[in-house]
């Protein structure tokens, strides 16, 4: 089948970008979306044009590196599917497909469809962890964790840090990402000691990174390839409120070294 692509091309973060149209010919329905782009790129190189830069690595939906907005929807809009796992059989011959990068101030474009998501790393650096150094751990089974708690923590921990939640949100808010990390660690007994301080510091780092605020539209949940629930956002809101009441902010400020 043949499809027309309307692709965002941008040389670097300083140069403004624009849409360019390409014809993708002889596409086989069993191809993945990124394999289709591979084919287009091979053609472009043969014609002496620079290939489209796009991110991908594992191509099995777990590394979180691939990132493209397909027809207005991050990852293309199939339940629980990253764009690397999206297949061309979901498109029809003659379709026109618009491909864009994640768009957010906090995720500046590096080139074409590749964006800089280091803002997520900075959030984790602030407090997305349990402070335990190598060797400090007690015997693993001395911490008993009810199965339901472990499973819920795992639901949140499944986040792959792809940034689709930010890309989908009309406010480019990172709440789902931050809430997932807060819930993963805050649900587990090991994470209780730092629970409120963590919530406070995560939110501070998120705000400093320039993400928007959450207006509860739930677009993030709809595009999340790991189907992470917005209920974790309510949990973050709750933890943050407790943090304010307890004065965790002062505690966080005084213990930062």
């Amino acid at each position: 089948m043949n499809v027309t692509l309307r692709v965002w091309r941008q040389k670097n973060s300083k140069t403004p970008g624009r849409f360019v149209e390409y014809q993708a010919k002889n596409i086989i329905p069993d191809m993945s979306f990124l394999e289709m782009l591979d084919v287009v790129n091979e053609d472009l190189i043969a014609r002496g044009e620079e290939p489209i830069a796009f991110d991908s690595d594992c191509r099995e939906g777990i590394c979180g590196k691939c990132s493209a907005v397909v027809n207005g929807v991050p990852h293309g809009g199939h339940r629980g599917t990253t764009v690397c796992q999206l297949h061309m059989r979901h498109f029809k011959d003659g379709d026109r497909i618009v491909i864009e990068p994640w768009r957010a101030t906090a995720f500046p474009v590096i080139k074409d469809l590749v964006v800089d998501r280091s803002a997520f790393d900075r959030i984790i650096q602030a407090s997305g962890f349990i402070s335990v150094s190598t060797g400090q751990a007690p015997e693993a089974n001395s911490i008993s964790i009810p199965r339901v708690v472990a499973e819920r923590a795992m639901d949140a921990a499944a986040c792959i840090g792809c940034g689709a939640c930010v890309a989908a949100c009309k406010n480019a808010s990172a709440m789902l990402f931050v809430a997932a990390k807060n819930a993963h660690l805050g649900l587990l007994p090991q994470g209780q000691a730092e629970r409120y301080r963590r919530a406070f510091t995560l939110v501070k780092a998120m705000d400093e990174a320039g993400f928007g605020s959450c207006t509860n539209t739930n677009s993030c949940e709809a595009v999340c390839p790991k189907e992470i629930s917005v209920e974790f956002i309510a949990r973050l809101n709750r933890d943050y409120a407790v943090a304010l009441l307890r004065g965790s902010g002062r505690e966080a400020a005084s213990s930062a070294d």
Binding site: G72, R103, A104, T105, N171, G212, T217
Partner: peptide
């Protein structure tokens, strides 16, 4: 908040309608 949110997404998508967000939530 709205000013902040607009600044967080200065460049719009080709198709502006956010995915699966209700009309009410988008027009608040």
């Amino acid at each position: 908040l709205t000013l902040r949110n607009r600044a967080a997404r200065p460049e719009k998508y080709d198709r502006s309608k956010p995915y699966r967000a209700s009309y009410a939530s988008r027009t608040l």
